[in-house]
């Protein structure tokens, strides 16, 4: 047992060893992290609701501001609730996240871009339909 223990320590410098040393899952859950995250998340949630429900800014500005708040809240949740950092799971978590973000940007910006152009190109033929829709909305108000 003692020689085995010795050997164990002999390989401490092994690069493979570094990230696999924990006995439980590599995350430490601390009260401080959760309360900090929760307080930040509440602030970042209340402000956008207040901006929209109170008509504080003009709508086009509000749109970008609340998207900004959502982006910041995403980072807060990732750091304090999902315990993300560049070292978790030996960096593979971050790699998977980066790949997902790349795919997400392609899917989202691609669909919005393509569909916007298709809409624009359909417009001449859809003129009547658009007018009818506009009329319908008008009637409802």
């Amino acid at each position: 047992m003692s020689s085995q223990h010795h050997d164990h320590h002999g390989h401490h410098g092994d690069p493979l060893h570094g990230h696999t040393h924990g006995d439980a899952p590599g995350v430490h859950y601390s009260l401080k992290d959760y309360t900090t995250g929760f307080i930040l998340a509440v602030i970042l949630t209340v402000i956008p609701f207040w901006l929209v429900m109170g008509n504080v800014l003009d709508p086009s500005t509000t749109k970008y501001v609340i998207l900004g708040f959502a982006g910041v809240q995403l980072i807060v949740h990732m750091v304090y609730f999902l315990h993300m950092n560049s070292k978790s799971e030996g960096g593979w978590n971050m790699m998977a996240l980066l790949l997902t973000i790349v795919l997400l940007v392609i899917v989202l910006s691609g669909s919005i871009w393509v569909m916007h152009h298709m809409n624009a190109n359909m417009m001449p033929g859809m003129g009547d339909a658009a007018a009818v829709t506009g009329h319908g909305n008008h009637d409802m108000q």
């Binding site: 696999t20 899952p25 590599g26 799971e89 030996g90 593979w92 978590n93 998977a96 996240l97 790949l99 997902t100 795919l103 997400l104 899917v107 989202l108 669909s111 919005i112 569909m115």
Partner: peptide, 29 residues
């Protein structure tokens, strides 16, 4: 094995992200 489960689950969550991304894209359109 321990790390493998959590990493594998994380990769599942990332694929779930893509599912939601397509639904968000549909809503955006």
């Amino acid at each position: 094995p321990e790390q493998g489960t959590l990493l594998g689950f994380w990769i599942y969550l990332m694929s779930d992200c893509l599912l939601f991304a397509s639904l968000f894209a549909a809503y955006a359109v």
